[in-house]
């Protein structure tokens, strides 16, 4: 199977700082790859380049055979790459339901909603959007809170709402930036199951940045470790967890044994 995404020699410099250096990655459809590393290692910058927010200084990003380097963010989104943000970005004054609906509208304008949601029976697009939004809210278990103002949701629920908004774009590749931040071990275990289920049931390909090692260990097929912009390890979760350089730079001694 050809890779869905192929990234070669990707580099990003901010002035004198090399935030990402010679980053390489191939993801096959349906894979779930973890991207870990210390705070400031360059993980979010990789996402920013994949989604067109930061232009690469060097290297190439090929998605389904198409070069993304110079495309603006909205075109990349329409090609099928959606993301969540480490610093939650919601319409804080809108309700949960409205937040998902506005995301649905983004793709509805392109008229592909009917095909992807198989909602041809609805004559009006608006009705289709409402139904799709509600369905997504059920998926992420926020249906019961759909009329609450986003700002008032507990932090962990705001994270789930972010995922809902990304799903509303019906992506092929989903980029999750620290989705388990602010969740307790039980909640992050549930989130792991949810992400794994999304991957299987929706045949989604996922790139996941996460500091909760239980999540990474449980669901990633492969893991890439960044430190100061450089890739210091790649391999199965068990391999990278046992890698001395990863323990030194990222895990710390106690965590490796825990």
């Amino acid at each position: 199977m050809p890779p869905l995404l192929r990234v070669s020699h990707l580099t990003k410099k901010f002035g004198g700082l090399t935030a990402v250096e010679d980053f390489n990655l191939e993801i096959k459809p349906g894979e779930l790859v973890g991207l870990i590393g210390p705070n400031g290692a360059g993980k979010t910058t990789v996402f920013n380049m994949l989604t067109g927010i930061n232009k690469p200084t060097a290297g190439e990003i090929i998605f389904e055979g198409k070069k993304l380097n110079d495309l603006p963010p909205y075109e990349i989104a329409h090609l099928g790459i959606a993301r969540t943000f480490q610093n939650i970005r919601l319409f804080t004054n809108l309700t949960v339901y409205e937040n998902v609906k506005t995301a649905c509208h983004q793709i509805a304008d392109y008229g592909i909603l009917d095909s992807v949601f198989r909602t041809a029976q609805f004559r009006k697009q608006e009705t289709a959007i409402n139904a799709a939004a509600l369905q997504i809210l059920k998926l992420v278990k926020l249906y019961d809170r759909k009329d609450e103002i986003a700002r008032n949701l507990p932090y962990g629920h705001q994270r789930r709402l972010e995922i809902a908004r990304a799903l509303a774009l019906r992506p092929k590749l989903l980029l999750l930036d620290e989705p388990a931040a602010g969740m307790n071990p039980q909640e992050s275990a549930e989130l792991s199951e949810f992400i794994d289920w999304l991957r299987k049931d929706f045949k989604l390909t996922i790139l996941l940045i996460e500091h909760h090692m239980d999540v990474v260990m449980n669901i990633c097929n492969r893991v890439i470790v960044l430190n100061f912009g450089k890739t210091i390890a790649t391999g199965s979760p068990a391999e990278v967890q046992a890698n001395p350089a990863v323990i030194e730079a990222y895990l710390g001694d106690e965590e490796a044994s825990a």
């Binding site: 590393g37 210390p38 705070n39 480490q86 620290e178 931040a181 602010g182 500091h211 090692m213 730079a249 990222y250 895990l251 710390g252 106690e254 965590e255």
Partner: peptide, 8 residues
Amino acid sequence: GLAPVLVN
């Protein structure tokens, strides 16, 4: 939001 080593 902290890396494991920083959490410690």
